[in-house]
């Protein structure tokens, strides 16, 4: 069955189908990068092929090979006719590939993953961001020249434009880490809790407890309270 799909592809696209194979029963066609999108549309819309079930897109890196560096593979199947093919194309390192999101929306995340891992760009992709890694990641880890032991730089605090992000505890607000402002205390000025914290922003009120407070047993002082 799938062989007929490959035969139809050959018939329709002629020399743009570079080679076909059926190693271990996996029917595959290698097509030119220029017809990548047309092949996908043909596979989906042709009533004989009817490849409506998107399976996957992935890539392989061949840096030692002469010619294009990457193989990009598309796996699709037909839910009504049960046949299943693999389409392959080859792209150079600096080249991009048309996105298949308009044909199968499921390609969105797969293409993002290929971009993330290999750095292959997809034209007209609606949302080409990294998906498994974070935006600050340097390099594309599934390329063969990315060393597995490579470490990544630390990511600084992320500024998001247009989003008011409040750090949970600024210097002037919230609960201080230390109950005693030791700099002040060593200067002999303040033996209390650093009252300045929170007061200026109106978030905290200072409450005086003692010395004539029941839990202080009449003669305690605030210093005792804070120890």
């Amino acid at each position: 069955m799938s062989k007929q799909v490959i035969a139809r592809l050959k018939e329709k696209f002629g020399t743009s189908v570079l080679e076909t194979s059926d190693f271990r029963g996996d029917d595959e066609a290698v097509v030119l990068k220029t017809v990548w999108l047309e092949v996908a549309k043909f596979l989906r819309d042709d009533p004989f092929c009817a490849m409506d079930h998107y399976i996957d897109i992935t890539a392989v890196d061949y840096p030692m090979r002469e010619g294009p560096r990457f193989d990009v593979l598309l796996f699709v199947r037909s839910s009504t006719r049960r046949h299943r093919v693999r389409i392959r194309t080859r792209v150079h390192e600096e080249e991009s590939l048309p996105s298949l999101v308009s044909v199968w929306p499921g390609a969105c995340w797969s293409e993002r993953e290929v971009f993330d891992m290999f750095g292959i760009r997809f034209d007209n992709h609606p949302d080409l961001r990294r998906i498994l890694l974070y935006p600050e990641f340097v390099g594309h880890p599934l390329r063969k020249d990315y060393p597995i032991e490579k470490t990544q730089p630390l990511v600084p605090y992320r500024e998001v434009p247009g989003v008011d992000k409040l750090p949970p505890f600024g210097p002037e607000m919230g609960q201080p880490w230390s109950r005693v402002d030791w700099n002040e205390r060593l200067l002999g000025r303040d033996i209390h809790v650093s009252t300045g914290i929170g007061l200026s922003s109106g978030q905290r009120a200072s409450v005086s407890i003692g010395p004539e407070h029941c839990v202080k047993e009449g003669e305690g002082n605030t210093q005792k309270l804070h120890e």
């Binding site: 409506d52 079930h53 998107y54 996957d56 839910s79 199968w104 929306p105 499921g106 390609a107 797969s110």
Partner: peptide, 9 residues
């Protein structure tokens, strides 16, 4: 169902 197929579910 048709969306599920196109999304690769």
């Amino acid at each position: 169902p048709d969306r599920a197929l196109a999304l690769g579910v």
